[in-house]
Amino acid sequence: MTESRTHTLFSFGTLRDDRVQTALFGRAVPTSPAALAGYTTRPLKITDPAVIAASGLDVHLILERRLGASVEGAVLHLTDQELAAADAYEVDDYTRRRVVLSSGATTWAYLDAKPLRPADRIVVVGDSIAYGRCDPRGGWAGHLAAAHIAGNEAERRLFNLAVPGSTLADVGEQTPALLTARRPDTLLVAAGINDSAVPAAGTTARADADLAVHSGSGSVSGSDSDSDSDSDGTDDFARLTGSLDTLAATALGHNARLVVAGPSWLDEDRTRDYEGLRFTRARALALRAFLRAWCEANHIDFLDLWEPLRERTELLVDGLHPSAEGHRALYEHLDALGR
């Protein structure tokens, strides 16, 4: 029989109530005082009758980022089953993510399910699409920056540090040194499409070998269908796990929330070869499936950017990079998902 683990969960609201704990867990659970730096709270209207019945309240609080602020609460010590019960208790507006307490200890906490909505200071890292190539207005990140900062000019910031041509390994290596001065509460990673490239037809054996060394695998998997069932080959992207783990640790080290944006749709009939490499939908779909699975397994937010450009080849300049209108479509989709 598998022994239940003990989990710690930060609560600043109704989960500290003995009556709520008894209703959820069948007991009052061990707790200890704690504080969460870099956060404040705002009210959230609750409509779920079961949650209202358990707490006796139709307005709960939800965490929001605020530099210099702090939220007082308590750490609950829960078994596997009790943590699952706490997950079931929280309404869809909340999601469980890792945070760093004022003491320096890491713990679970329930945050806003829309990861960009509570953000104050966002750092974007990634590749040429995140950089905004083919859009003089700065691409989807430029639109996001304008809308985000307009909401609170005094407090909000967005730093776009994306570099064209970057792989996830590049981003994982370069990002740690860039964050301290910018004091982010949210790290938005939009990279990986360059990791999905395959040798173009007619390239030399050396190009094939270089790709195999870079990727850790010479195989090409998946098919040319937009169906997720055809996105086999996620194992080929297992080499990216180390870079993602590094980015997760880097974000947590700054008490920032990691958000991963998946690849956007591409028209491989129009994508040209780049330095002996080419991009295919099958590989992009396999990358998308891998990133989504990694995020789910690690309780990291995944924002899927595939659908806004799907079959809309007129919104792509070269089959891969969005036009200005394409970037606008990506921003509107990202805004709906994240804010």
Rank of each mutant, 00 (worst) to 15 (best):
L258N: 03
A261P: 00
P136T: 12
G165A: 10
S103Y: 05
I129Q: 03
L168A: 09
A329R: 13
R183E: 00
A207P: 01
D127R: 02
L63E: 04
S55F: 07
T2A: 12
P49D: 01
S32H: 13
V124M: 11
V260I: 15
V20L: 03
P136A: 14
G139A: 08
G276H: 08
Y331S: 07
E311S: 13
G218M: 10
G132V: 06
A28K: 14
Y39T: 07
A35W: 04
G192Q: 06
L247D: 05
H214Y: 14
A113C: 09
V20M: 02
L36I: 05
A289V: 07
V213R: 13
R328W: 06
P118S: 11
I193E: 01
R121K: 12
L83W: 08
P164Q: 07
A207T: 15
E275Q: 14
A85P: 04
A169Y: 06
S11T: 15
V91A: 13
S323G: 08
R183Y: 05
A85F: 02
E268M: 12
L211D: 11
L9R: 03
D208C: 10
A282T: 00
L158D: 04
T280E: 09
L252T: 14
L57K: 15
E173L: 11
P176A: 04
L78R: 00
V259E: 06
C295V: 08
E153G: 03
R257I: 03
A109Q: 05
D48S: 13
R98M: 12
D273S: 15
L285P: 01
I122L: 10
G319P: 05
V99Y: 08
A205Y: 08
E90C: 10
R292P: 02
V124P: 01
I46S: 07
T175P: 02
P43D: 06
I193Y: 01
F12K: 05
I129W: 02
D228H: 09
G56H: 08
R257D: 11
G338T: 03
A181V: 12
L285S: 10
L61W: 00
P30I: 02
D267S: 13
T8I: 06
N194H: 12
D269K: 13
V91C: 11
P176H: 04
A329K: 09
G338N: 04
L211K: 07
D210T: 06
V99G: 09
